[in-house]
């Protein structure tokens, strides 16, 4: 209607894609596999849920090809909760993304947790009306995904490990790489863009503003309230919790505690309050004992 020409329409589409990510800031996005879990997540204060067939810890255990969840499961979850519902597609699998768009999910995660469909190309996300979130281990990867149209970035961490070490590594890497850019002269940025393998205009944006042009969240290994508080203090603007909740002894309680700690991440007394009497956390894996082939974070580039 009043949206005028096509360029303006594209600009406005980008604004509402990033806009929804803005609304999720300071919140917790939880992995759920059933409508019942989605309800538990919503009641605990999740700002969105990620609908999937198996949580990463089970994908890891069971092996085989991990694909987009069945539309039936996603639809049941969409019918059950009023908060935004996200779902995952395999890296490069734009047809799965088309299906999720037809299903009208609110966000698509092009995710390394699923088995990649294309080892060279990610989805061209600008072609979609539904916004995308993508994982990244460093600034170059984050900017390549934004260049393809991702409206939200999350650190990859190591999904399903229950171990925060990789999420920390990736967040620290991105934050220090951004800081470095802000200290550089404009004549240095082309070389830096070449080194990062990232589009020049996005490198220039980061150099000027000291942050990504889209919200930067954290994922991959968060299992406790203190894990969430750690990632928020390191610069995450919100957190994804995958296996950490529904692989723990008391999911409802842990979900609520992680939400509380994420909001109050600067207040150690409140994080303490959230950490008390939570029951057993998920067992977790030592990433150093894992073999290269078992790492999910190296999927995609």
């Amino acid at each position: 209607m009043e949206n005028g020409n096509e360029k303006k329409g594209q600009e406005n589409l980008w604004r509402v894609k990033v806009g929804l990510a803005e609304m999720l800031k300071g919140g917790v996005i939880m992995d759920v596999t059933t409508a019942e879990q989605a309800k538990i997540a919503e009641d605990a204060g999740a700002c969105a849920v990620m609908a999937l067939e198996r949580v990463p810890a089970d994908i890891r255990k069971e092996g085989g090809v991990a694909r987009m969840a069945s539309p039936r499961i996603i639809r049941e979850i969409m019918d059950t909760v009023t908060i935004p519902v996200m779902a995952k597609v395999r890296i490069g699998h734009f047809a799965e993304a088309q299906v999720l768009q037809a299903l009208e999910v609110d966000y698509i995660d092009e995710s390394e947790v699923l088995t990649p469909a294309d080892e060279e190309n990610h989805v061209w996300k600008h072609a979609f009306k539904v916004p995308f979130v993508c994982g990244a281990r460093n600034l170059g990867e984050a900017l390549r995904r934004i260049g393809e149209g991702a409206a939200m970035i999350r650190t990859k961490g190591e999904a399903g490990s229950g171990n925060i070490v990789e999420a920390v590594r990736h967040m620290r890497t991105i934050v220090s790489q951004m800081k470095k850019l802000t200290t550089m002269g404009e004549e240095q940025l082309m070389h830096e863009a070449k080194e990062l393998g990232a589009p020049l205009d996005l490198v220039q944006h980061v150099a000027k503003h000291g942050k990504l042009p889209v919200p930067n969240f954290s994922a991959g290994g968060i299992a406790t309230p203190a894990d969430a508080a750690l990632m928020m203090q390191l610069g995450a603007e919100a957190v994804f919790v995958g296996s950490g909740i529904f692989k723990s002894a008391d999911p409802a309680k842990r979900a609520k505690a992680i939400v509380y700690a994420t909001t109050n991440y600067q207040d150690a007394k409140k994080v303490l309050e959230a950490s008390d009497e939570l029951g057993e956390a998920m067992k977790g894996l030592d990433v150093r004992q894992m073999e290269e082939k078992d790492l999910l974070q190296t999927r995609g580039w």
Binding site: M1, E2, N3, N12, L20, P84, E104, V105, Y107, P131
Partner: peptide, 16 residues
């Protein structure tokens, strides 16, 4: 009424 205009696909910018 919550989410009365629909899901994210219905999010948009208007000049009013």
């Amino acid at each position: 009424v919550r989410n009365a205009y629909g899901r994210q696909l219905s999010s948009d910018v208007f000049l009013l």
